[in-house]
């Protein structure tokens, strides 16, 4: 009888810790936001939020320092748009090929290959981009440096593609077989079925794939820092060096004084990034849920 009670106690402890672990994941999200706020908020005692978000110059170590992140936001935006323009069409096309056309064997191999691409550390991709793509772009366009927004976009496109391909592929595979059979039965070719029926039915999932791919690009740090040239000025074109939000944090945190305004400004950039990715992921999740239904 006593052992039964001991077992009950043990199970009670285990079940409570399981509940607690579930709660922890929520706590971590809150904690991340809380600590970003805690460290970043002091910036807004001397600086208005408007000046921070829309200020045109980022001179964190001049005297007086200027903490306007508009150049960084535009830098992130430019690189992201470029990466999306490359990776979305290619990624969706590859997903259609893998899900609908490739024979089973090839399909498994391709999926494994894409998983491996996703696994390559961003610092390795940045390294390769810096050392091979950079000089190539420099020579191609005959410009002073190959480390530009375009280099960043191309590099990041490769990092977004695994996300886009694998999530879009899931969405396409999830389209019920009856849709395809009905279309084929009415005399449509395989391509017409794929394009007109399957791709349309999988649209919410594909949108989610695109959103998550973009989320990955915006959050990417090391690769982008290594290939974009890091000039914190408002960009006017793709063939210029730019500086993104993430790269700014990574590059400057080491030099900032803890508790100082520069330090706080970098955390404030973290808040901006957190909110952007929170929104992107929330929306993507909504699309995913819709596509599952």
């Amino acid at each position: 009888m006593k052992s039964v009670q001991a077992r009950k106690l043990k199970e009670w402890v285990i079940e409570k810790s399981i509940l607690l672990s579930g709660i922890f994941s929520v706590v971590f999200v809150l904690l991340i936001f809380l600590f970003l706020l805690r460290e970043g908020f002091s910036l807004f005692r001397g600086e208005s939020v408007i000046d921070f978000l829309f200020g045109k110059s980022w001179y964190p170590i001049s005297d007086p320092p200027r903490f306007g992140i508009l150049p960084l936001i535009l830098g992130s935006l430019l690189v992201t748009l470029g990466a999306a323009a490359i990776s979305v069409p290619i990624g969706i096309a590859a997903a259609l090929f893998i899900a609908e056309i490739a024979p089973l064997r090839l399909r498994e191999a391709l999926k494994a290959g894409i998983e491996l691409l996703a696994a390559i550390p961003s610092v390795v991709i940045g390294f390769i981009g810096m050392i091979t793509l950079g000089p190539w772009i420099k020579n191609l366009f005959n410009i002073p440096t190959g480390l530009t927004a375009l280099t960043g976009s191309v590099t990041l496109a490769f990092m977004a593609m695994p996300t886009i391909v694998s999530i879009a592929e899931d969405a396409i595979t999830a389209v019920p077989r009856q849709y395809r059979e009905a279309a084929i039965a009415m005399g449509a070719t395989q391509w017409q079925t794929t394009w007109r029926i399957v791709a349309r039915a999988a649209r919410p999932g594909m949108l989610a794939a695109v959103m998550l791919g973009i989320g990955r690009v915006i959050g990417e740090t090391m690769a982008v820092m290594m290939v974009t040239g890091n000039a914190a000025v408002i960009p006017t074109g793709f063939l210029q060096p730019v500086r993104t939000l993430t790269a700014t944090i990574a590059a400057e945190m080491g030099e900032s004084v803890q508790g100082g305004p520069h330090y706080a400004a970098l955390f404030a950039i973290g808040i901006v990034l957190f909110i952007i990715t929170f929104l992107i992921n929330g929306v993507a999740d909504l699309f995913l849920h819709r596509s599952r239904r």
Binding site: I32, T221, I249, G270, L273, T277
Partner: peptide, 15 residues
Amino acid sequence: IVNLAGVPSVVYGLF
């Protein structure tokens, strides 16, 4: 969990 997965790695660094 969805959001933890989406938080940029550099923000984890800040945290």
